[in-house]
Design a protein around this nucleic acid. Structure first.
Length: 315
DNA sequence: AATCCGTGGTC
DNA sequence: TGACCAAGGAT
């Protein structure tokens, strides 16, 4: 017999049935997260998305609440010194995100009349917003129809559609096509689908310990139907932390965060034993704009605007 | 495209 | 106990 077409994968279950099952599950099991409440607004959604980049929900919750209370609008944050954003970021990790969120607030203040832009293209142009975050804000804050491909959704699709335990290390064109083809036509339904597939990945289709017994689409899951085969191919590399520059940067920045006043070099020296690595870490912090050097070897969190932003000092 | 960028919880 | 993992982005 001749194969005239080239179906590469198991035919996906009826998309409409998938949509219905996952969205119904979501309506029953979705967590009541503050950024999902109507009063969060687009700014609340955007702040949450920045904080949730590579940081678990439970650690974001308290910082998110303090942040929105202090800076309820983009303009409020834009008028602050960037160092205050870095300080308020606390121990969420990857503090460059705080700087980027501040810079995004400045851009929104200057270019968008203080309103978080609706258009995906404009969102994508903001600092700290990439393909995922632009789609997430457009979808969750404004109810638009965009493929939202985060690590959760990629894992759900890898298993349910492709039949592999894990998605590829980097997002592929095939994944984007799958996400696009599976996106419901109806705009509001597409936004619910995006949130629902993310939640399914976070609560049920988890990376190390999937709870297939609780999965609404287990019966049609390609990975399960294939016998839940283990990952094949090169081992997925996990990044080390202890002893790296990242750890040193973390020490240095923690000291500066916890001090209301600038710190002398001698104090920073106590945060790490190796002077070479210490100096390198401090250099990169300054280069990143996370630390501001003063004269006489004194350092503080940045009080001046990031380069590239306009300055309008009151005289 | 591979690497860098924090932090802390989980099993 | 240490590897794995968490709603990525920039270069």
């Amino acid at each position: 017999m001749t194969v005239t077409t080239a179906p590469t994968k198991t035919p996906p279950a009826d998309p409409a049935a998938l949509h219905e099952a996952v969205i119904a599950w979501f309506e029953e099991h979705a967590r009541d997260l503050p950024w999902r409440r109507p009063e969060a607004g687009a700014w609340g959604v955007m702040v949450s998305e920045f904080m949730l980049q590579q940081t678990p929900v439970n650690r974001v919750l308290p910082v998110y609440a303090q942040w929105l209370e202090r800076w309820p609008t983009p303009a409020a944050l834009a008028l602050e010194a960037p160092g205050e954003a870095v300080r308020a970021w606390g121990r969420l990790g990857y503090p460059r995100r705080a700087l980027r969120l501040h810079a995004a607030a400045v851009a929104i203040h200057e270019r968008h009349g203080g309103q978080v832009p609706r258009r995906h293209e404009h969102l994508l142009a903001l600092p700290g917003i990439g393909e995922y975050t632009a789609a997430a804000v457009a979808s969750f804050a404004y109810g638009q129809r965009h493929p939202v491909l985060d690590t959760n959704v990629r894992r759900v699709f890898a298993r349910a559609v492709t039949g592999t335990q894990y998605p590829p290390s980097a997002t592929t064109a095939a994944e984007r096509r799958t996400a696009r083809e599976l996106l419901p036509q109806d705009e509001a339904r597409a936004a619910h689908w995006a949130a629902a597939t993310m939640e399914l990945g976070a609560l049920v289709c988890k990376s190390a310990t999937p709870v297939c017994a609780a999965c609404p689409i287990a019966a049609s899951c390609a990975w399960r139907l294939a016998g839940s085969p283990a990952h094949t191919g090169p081992p997925r590399r996990t990044q080390t932390y202890a002893g790296t520059d990242r750890q040193v940067r973390g020490r240095l920045l923690a000291a500066l965060r916890d001090s209301p006043t600038p710190l002398p070099q001698s104090t920073l020296d106590k945060t790490w034993h190796d002077p070479v690595q210490r100096a390198r870490a401090l250099d990169t912090l300054v280069a990143d704009g996370l630390v501001e050097p003063l004269t006489n070897g004194v350092y503080r969190l940045p009080q001046t605007r990031e380069p590239g932003t306009t300055e309008a000092p009151p005289q």
